[in-house]
Structures are given as structure tokens and as C-alpha cells.
Amino acid sequence: MTETSNWLAACRVEDAVENGGVCVKNGEEQIALFYFKRRNEWFATQNECPHRKQMALSRGMIGSTTDEPKVACPFHKKTFSLHTGECLSGDECGAIKTYPVKIDNGVVYIGKYPK
């Protein structure tokens, strides 16, 4: 059962928003889950934007710069890499945590520990 203890069953694939984000409750924590349909990739990050500590990243727009997938916070449009969590907006608000994601049998699982 080690499998289940490290992975949180977040939602079903069809509950996630295509090319957008949803917010997943993990106890006290909030995790933003993104389904990048165009690239057929899934990403998970902390939901809190480090800029003004707003629980907002799941409501941000996703996209890419060169080939780096990213999310833009809806508040002040700071952008963060979905791969590394690094802040891409130059003016540095620090990196965000990213989590592994896997799909099994139509269920989306998020790793409980950041990458």
C-alpha cells in the first residue's frame, strides 16, 4: 500500500479543466492541477502565488514561452514555469512548489511531496 500513501487521488480526468487549472484540497494544503491538453501533459503546483500570497494560481491562464509550459497568476500576471516552478517574470517572487502527477484508470493522482 505504499503506492496510495504517497499519492493523493485528486479527481477524475473529466473533472479537470482542459487547458486550464482546478484547485485540489489536500488537507490544509491547496494544490493547483493543470491539464495541458494541447501537450497532453499534467502539472501540479502550489495554489498560492508567492507574489502577494493569493490562493489563485489554479485560476490562472496556462501557456508557454519558447517551449516552457507556464501559468500566469490572475492577480498581477506573474508567470511561473510548470516544470520547475521558477518565476519567469524577471522581478523574482521566488519559485513555487511543483508536484508529480500520474493518471491511472481515469483517476488523476498528485504526489504528496513536492518534486
Binding site: 479543466v17 491562464m61 496556462i62 490572475p74
Partner: peptide, 21 residues
């Protein structure tokens, strides 16, 4: 038509997001 995720948060939720969320 999947256009919701191509909107600014304000358009996506048909309301202006405020400080705090």
C-alpha cells in the same frame, strides 16, 4: 467551446477578482 480557459480570470468567472480571491 473551451473558450473559458482562454479568458482572463475576470472573464472566466464573469466577475472581477478582488484582493484575497
Amino acid at each position: 467551446k473551451g473558450n473559458d480557459v482562454a479568458q482572463d480570470s475576470n472573464d472566466r468567472f464573469l466577475a472581477n477578482i478582488q484582493k484575497g480571491g
